[in-house]
Write a protein that binds this DNA or RNA. Structure first.
Lengths: 371, 371
DNA sequence: CTGAAAGCGCTTACAG
DNA sequence: CTGAAAGCGCTTACAG
C-alpha cells in the first residue's frame, strides 16, 4: 500500500512536470478510482451522490480520496450541466446601504439554496456593462440581477432587452431590481418598490401637518429613480389639492454637498416653502446643513423628509423622518425568481413612512397670508 | 446554405430532445466549426485568441458563430485551466459601509484584471464557513478573502490555518482582511489597518485637549477588532501618562442601542469621565443619544470620538470626530495580493483622524481638582 | 495557417 | 451494485 502511494506520487510529479498549464488540484477522480481499485464510474457515483454504491466500496473510495487529497473539480462538474449555477449581481457601484441591503437579501436566498453570488460593478460604463453580460453568459450563470436606477432612454430599454435575449440564449434570465419594468418589454421581469407611492407618503404627512407649499429637491429627470420620485411628488401634490409650483422643484445631485447647495438656494429665494421632501436621505442631510447655515431650525423653519432610511439618519438632530424602502426584501424576491422559487412576474413592494422629528406643522409666521 | 441551416436546426432539436439534462446553450464549437467548414481546432483558435488563423478563415468562423448564436462555454474553458479564476469574498454579514467599501476595493481591482468576485456570508456560523471554503475550493477560486474581525481563540487560528492548507491544495490562497496575522502562522497573509494606532490617535487628541479621565466604550474581548481597539486605548493612555482606571472601560455591543445604554450608565456612575472613545461610530452615536437624554451636551459635558467614519456621522450635531480606516484600500491591497499583483506579505495600513465637533477641552467644572 | 488526435475531469445511460 | 464507453465543450501539442 505504501509502495503504491509512492508510485502514485512519482506518477503525479511526472505528470505535473510534463504537462503545460499547471493542473489545478493535482489529483483527479481517475487517480482516486485507481487507488481504490474501482472503476471511474463508481468513484464518480460516490462523489456525485447519485446511483447506488455498496457501503464498503464507498468507504474505500472515500479513504483513497482522503489519502490522495482529492478535491472534486466543480468546474468539470458544472460543465456537464450539474451543480448549481451562480447568480450574478450587477450594479453601478457598491455604494451605501442601499446596495448592501439588496445584496444581502439576494445572497441570503442564494446561499440558502446552494448558489453563489457573483458581484460586479459597471461604474455606469456601458462598455463595461456589455462586457460583463458577455462574461456572465459564457460562465452560464443562472440569472443576472441588474440592480438600481438606470437611464430612462429608449436606447437603454433596447439594450436591456438585448441582454435579456442574449441571456435567454444560454438559459439564463435577466431580472431588473429597484427599477420599474421596461416599457415595451413587459416580459422583462422587474422587482421594485413603489417609489412614487413612497414620496406620496412623505407628501401626505406634510399636507396632514398643514403645509401648503412643499418643495422637492432631487436629481433631474433621466434616471428611473429620479423620475419616479419626482412624479410621485407631483401626483401627491395634486391628490392633496396643493399647488404645483415649478419654483418649488429644485435640482440637486445625490450628494450631501449638492443637497446643501440646492436647499440653500431654496431658502435664499424665499418663496414660501415651509417643507420639503428630498429625493434621498443624502440630500436631506445636505438640507440639514443648509438650514443650519442659514441660522434656521428644523422643523420650525423648514420641515424635511428624506427617502431611503439610511443608518444614523435617525440620530440627527432632529431625527430625520423618512421613507423606508424594503431593499433587503427586493433582493430576496429577485433571488427567489432567479432560482425559480417564485413565479417570474413583476413585483412591486411597499415602502413605509418612518416618523421622526424633522417634520412638524408649519411655523405660523411663515405660512402664506391667504391661510 | 439555407438547407444546411435547416439540417443544423433539425440536428440540434433532436440532440436536445434525446439528451437527458438540458444542454446549456444549444450550440457548441463543433457546430460552429462544421458550419464554417473548418476543423474544431481552428474554430477554437479564433475564440481562444491564440495561434494563427488566416483572416478569411477567421471571418468565416465568426460569421457562423453569429448565425448559430454560439456562446463560448467559459466553464469548459475554465476546466482546461485557462480563463480567469474568480476571487471569493467571505464575510460574516453584508452589513454597513465597512463591508461595502472593502468589497468595492476588492471588486475594483478584480474587475480591472478580468476576474469576477464571488461574495458570500457566513453569519458567524462555523459550519457554513467550512462548507463555503469547501465549495470555493471545488470551484477552484484563485483566492479567498476572509474579511473582518474573528474570534481570538487558538481554535480559530487552527481552523483558519486549515483553510489555508486546504486551499493551497488547489493552488488557491487565503488572505485575511481587516484582522491581524494569525499568531503561530506568520505565513498566513493578512491585510489590515492599524486599529490600535487608530484608537491611539483618538486618545492623543483628547489628551491634547486636556482630558485626564478618558473612558472607552466597546465590545468585550474575544474578537480581534474588540481586542485591538481596547488594547490601543490602554497603550495610548499609558503613553500619555494617563490613569488606567478599569471603571472607565465599559462594555457595549456594537449597536446604537447598547452604546446608549453603556454611556448612560457611565454618566450615571459619575466617575469623572470628561471624554470617551467609542469602539465604533455606532456606539458613539448611541452615546449621543445617552448624553442628550441626560440633559447634557456634547462636547461641553462629554467629548466623544468614534471609529469607522461611517457616512452621515459628519452631520450629527455636533459632527462626530472619528478615526477613518482605509477600508477601500484594504480591499484593493488584498485583491492585488490575491491576483499576484503584489507580493504576498502582511500589510498594515494607517488610519487617519478626522476632527469634527464632538471633542473639545474639558469643562472646567468637571475637571478633577488636582489639576 | 490548418487538422487529427489526445486530453482536461467529470457524469450517465447501458449492460451486466 | 459495478464497469466500459461515450459524452460534456473546449484546448493544445504535434505534424503537416
Amino acid at each position: 500500500m505504501s509502495e503504491m502511494d509512492e508510485n502514485e506520487s512519482i506518477r503525479k510529479v511526472s505528470r505535473l512536470g510534463s504537462r503545460g498549464p499547471e493542473r489545478l488540484g493535482a489529483v483527479n477522480l481517475r487517480d482516486v478510482a485507481a487507488h481504490a481499485g474501482v472503476s471511474l464510474a463508481t468513484a464518480s457515483r460516490v462523489f456525485a451522490g447519485n446511483g447506488q454504491v455498496q457501503p464498503a466500496t464507498r468507504a474505500r473510495v472515500l479513504a483513497s480520496a482522503e489519502v490522495l487529497g482529492y478535491v472534486v473539480n466543480g468546474l468539470a462538474r458544472a460543465m456537464t450541466g450539474r451543480g448549481p449555477r451562480s447568480i450574478a449581481f450587477v450594479v453601478r457601484a457598491m455604494i451605501g446601504p442601499t446596495f448592501a441591503a439588496l445584496a444581502a437579501g439576494a445572497e441570503s436566498v442564494a446561499g440558502q439554496n446552494g448558489h453563489l453570488l457573483l458581484m460586479s460593478t459597471t461604474n455606469g460604463d456601458q462598455q463595461r456593462e456589455r462586457e460583463l453580460i458577455a462574461i456572465l453568459r459564457e460562465l452560464r450563470v443562472k440569472a443576472v440581477l441588474l440592480v438600481g436606477s438606470t437611464e430612462t432612454l429608449p436606447a437603454f430599454d433596447e439594450r436591456v432587452a438585448g441582454y435579456a435575449k442574449d441571456l435567454a440564449q444560454v438559459n439564463a434570465s435577466l431580472i431588473l431590481c429597484g427599477r420599474p419594468p421596461v416599457t415595451g418589454h413587459p416580459d422583462l421581469v422587474s422587482v421594485d418598490y413603489d417609489q412614487g407611492a413612497g414620496v406620496g407618503l412623505a407628501v401626505n404627512e406634510l399636507a396632514r401637518l398643514g403645509h401648503r407649499r412643499i418643495a422637492y429637491v432631487g436629481e433631474k429627470r433621466g434616471m428611473t429613480t429620479a423620475e419616479l420620485r419626482l412624479d410621485g411628488y407631483r401626483a401627491a401634490l395634486v391628490r392633496n389639492g396643493l399647488e404645483v409650483d415649478p419654483a418649488l422643484v429644485r435640482v440637486a445631485a445625490n450628494t450631501e454637498a449638492d443637497g446643501a447647495r440646492a436647499v440653500g438656494e431654496l431658502l435664499r429665494d424665499n418663496i414660501g416653502a415651509t417643507a420639503m421632501v428630498a429625493m434621498t436621505d443624502n440630500i436631506a442631510v445636505g438640507g440639514y446643513r443648509a438650514v443650519r447655515e442659514h441660522g434656521l431650525k428644523i422643523p420650525d423653519d423648514l420641515s424635511i423628509i428624506g427617502f431611503d432610511d439610511v443608518p444614523v439618519v435617525a440620530d440627527l438632530t432632529p431625527g430625520l423622518s423618512t421613507v423606508h424602502p424594503p431593499f433587503f426584501e427586493v433582493g430576496v424576491r429577485a433571488a427567489e425568481i432567479a432560482l425559480g422559487l417564485a413565479p417570474a412576474t413583476h413585483v412591486l413592494l411597499e415602502t413605509r413612512f418612518v416618523r421622526r422629528g424633522s417634520a412638524a406643522p408649519p411655523n405660523p409666521a411663515c405660512v402664506p397670508l391667504d391661510l
